[in-house]
């Protein structure tokens, strides 16, 4: 086929260096974290040697070199996924799956429910990615969908949602991996916090996790818990009192 004869190649390249959708908003919550506005990939990957698509593969182009996506930023994966790239979505999901599961487990107090909630959340994330306005903050956005799906599940299971608290405690042992020097100082506090959180009534525990880990607003917490905003503030206030009182004992 004649490439030159068929197309008029316009030359817009290089002129537009504005980053598309690169608004990085600082968030104070745990999931927001420091935002990486640049993405990185491993050197030495010879992209030129990747096989070209064959006619037989027309309906399902092969996925990209995994190392290309594995080292891409969340923001780039989110934008590719919202453009329909399933491989980018799977990479994004795998990257944050254990945190999504941990969050859902703390909220539902059930490992099995957490797995179901995260599954529903994953589909909702795929579905709603095209509406995401700040791709670089995708992790926090994903976690909000996880909490939404966790409470959908809790509501559908009432009133037995809290029965297997003990099972969760058993399944989430304190792991002593990490910096030994830091652990010497904080291990007692961490296991103390675990015990204190597990001892809190469900609403207080959920309000605390949603607020302090998920960075959700009073209004969002109230909606999740099915109570008024004033009542949500009350639950959070009691959680703060209980946890700070416990904390005094660890100092």
């Amino acid at each position: 086929m004649e490439v030159d004869g068929r197309i008029d190649l316009s030359n817009r390249s290089g002129d537009e260096t504005h980053a598309a959708g690169e608004t990085s908003r600082e968030t104070s919550n745990f999931f927001g974290g420091p935002l990486r506005s640049l993405w990185e990939f491993a050197g030495g990957v010879n992209l030129a040697e990747r096989p070209r698509g064959l006619a037989a593969e027309r309906e399902a182009p092969p996925g990209p070199d995994p190392s290309l996506l594995d080292t891409a930023t969340d923001g780039l994966l989110a934008r590719r996924a919202s453009d329909g790239d399933e491989h980018a979505f799977e990479t994004l999901l795998r990257r944050h799956l254990s945190l999504m599961t941990a969050y859902a487990t703390r909220l539902t107090a059930s490992r099995a429910d957490a797995s179901d909630a995260v599954q529903e959340a994953s589909i909702a994330i795929w579905r709603e990615l095209p509406t995401l306005t700040a791709p670089d903050a995708v992790r926090g956005w994903m976690m909000k969908i996880v909490s939404r799906k966790a409470f959908d599940l809790i509501r559908s299971r009432k009133p037995t949602a809290d029965v297997d608290d003990d099972a969760v405690v058993a399944q989430l042992p304190v792991t002593d991996a990490g910096d030994p020097a830091r652990l010497a100082v904080s291990a007692d506090a961490m296991s103390g916090l675990r015990r204190a959180l597990d001892a809190l009534p469900a609403l207080q525990r959920q309000a605390w996790i949603l607020r302090e880990v998920g960075g959700e607003s009073y209004g969002e917490i109230a909606e999740h818990l099915g109570i008024t905003t004033t009542a949500a503030r009350g639950q959070l206030a009691r959680a703060r009192e209980n946890l700070t009182r416990e904390m005094e004992a660890w100092r």
Partner: peptide
């Protein structure tokens, strides 16, 4: 104290996540 609780809560979730076993391949493929 509040600040420490906030930091610890984040670390607690990160520890939970680190202790999470690798996802079931059937779960992912589903």
């Amino acid at each position: 104290t509040l600040e420490r609780l906030r930091v610890l809560s984040g670390e607690l979730l990160a520890e939970d996540a680190a202790a999470d076993p690798d996802p079931d391949p059937r779960w992912i493929s589903g």
